[in-house]
Computed example of a mutant assay.
Amino acid sequence: MPDGQQSPHDRLVVADTHNDLLMAVSARPPEIWSSFFRDRWLPQLVEGGVDVQVLPVFVDSWFRPEGALRQTLRMIECAHVLAEGNPDAVALCHDGQQIDEALALGRIALVLALESMPGIDESVELVPTLHRLGVRVASIAHWGRTALADGSGQDGTGSRLTSHGVQALREMERLGMLFDISHLGATGVAHVLEIAARPVIATHSSARALRDHHRNLTDEQLRGVAAGGGVVCVNFLAAFLTEDARSATVDHLVDHIEHVASVAGIDHVGLGPDFMREVTEDLTPPCCEGFAYSGIDAGAAIPGLEGPRGLPLVTDGLVKRGFSEEEIQKILGANVMRLFRAELGRPAPEGAGEGQPAR
């Protein structure tokens, strides 16, 4: 890059649809949530050029089932507290207009998400409650079985969404909450794509054609998300990019981005990093050599991409691969921004989705 010339990464909006930093921040005493975020995570987001950050609420297994809802609410409160404590730097946003306003003021736009809804169980009537608290994106399963659906680790069951899972999807569509298919079992994904009345998102899923792992999406699934107007945000986790996770490089990641773009279309691909190593080091130092989670090498990361400060490496990789600036703009954030502007916090039109059976 010639002296004085700004890189594409600095010029363009960058949207990260999956960073579990709330797990690390909420593990601290509430009185330091704001300061810990400012000292530990904010510099990384700024250095990485992050403009829009989706904050998933993930509840570890030891809180389930009794403490799941309490931990869900605690993490949601943590998001509100860190935003209120750093109003010069971040803003918790409920819709596309608020995101645009935050970016215009030079703030990072934060969007609350739920990963697998463990605190809900069959109580789908609580989905509007979570919407009132600011949640705008949600999935309904993780690795295993929930009251709403089976996660991808249970693909052998061939299960579709339960009746409560279908009700949750309908409530989310009614309210303007994006349905996240990442972690959902293969038959569940097919079910969602069959009955969804609004676009869906995969917040952190890579291409199964390049790495045959149940957490990745098949070409058929990629095409299905795109056909509905949704976006697939590629996961950076090394174990999902290549079988030999310890050898993963930026090129492996760009391979997955390129594949999703070629199958789903350049308008339907984004970034969903899932910086597991960085978050885990915050929670359980020292970490993470030999650290395994649900059968994957969770300690393996692409060198330089252990956390958000390395995001410019992705843009550099896309430039070297020959993507145009317009294409890079779409991948880094424009596709996600289009989806967020159209869907977040926007109630469904009267009668939308009616007449579709809860199969």
Results as ranks from 00 to 15, higher is better:
300 A>Y: 08
120 I>D: 05
224 G>M: 09
114 L>F: 10
126 L>M: 06
152 S>M: 09
143 W>E: 10
72 T>N: 00
163 S>H: 10
209 A>V: 15
271 L>A: 06
20 D>T: 09
348 A>S: 14
199 P>W: 05
74 R>K: 12
31 E>T: 02
154 Q>E: 15
157 T>Y: 08
189 V>Q: 07
262 S>R: 14
159 S>D: 10
12 L>I: 01
317 G>R: 08
178 L>S: 09
14 V>P: 03
76 I>Y: 00
314 V>E: 04
98 Q>H: 08
167 Q>K: 13
110 L>K: 03
33 W>C: 00
278 E>M: 13
165 G>N: 04
96 G>T: 01
62 W>S: 14
143 W>C: 09
286 P>Y: 00
221 Q>R: 03
81 V>T: 02
124 V>N: 01
227 A>I: 09
195 I>V: 15
225 V>K: 05
159 S>T: 08
247 S>G: 13
306 E>D: 08
218 T>L: 12
301 A>H: 13
11 R>G: 02
75 M>Y: 01
56 P>G: 05
75 M>P: 02
90 V>Y: 06
311 L>M: 15
86 N>E: 06
197 A>V: 08
137 V>H: 03
323 F>T: 07
340 F>Q: 01
344 L>Y: 11
22 L>I: 15
229 G>A: 04
63 F>N: 13
261 A>M: 04
116 S>W: 08
204 H>T: 04
184 L>Q: 07
330 K>W: 01
246 R>C: 10
32 I>Y: 01
254 V>K: 12
117 M>D: 11
38 R>P: 06
257 I>K: 07
262 S>G: 12
359 R>G: 05
76 I>H: 01
287 C>H: 02
150 D>C: 06
199 P>G: 13
85 G>H: 08
308 P>D: 10
205 S>Q: 06
315 T>W: 02
270 G>E: 06
339 L>Y: 04
186 A>E: 15
226 A>E: 09
99 I>G: 01
143 W>F: 13
355 G>F: 03
263 V>M: 02
35 S>L: 02
266 I>L: 14
194 E>D: 15
147 A>I: 02
244 D>C: 12
88 D>I: 02
225 V>L: 07
267 D>M: 05
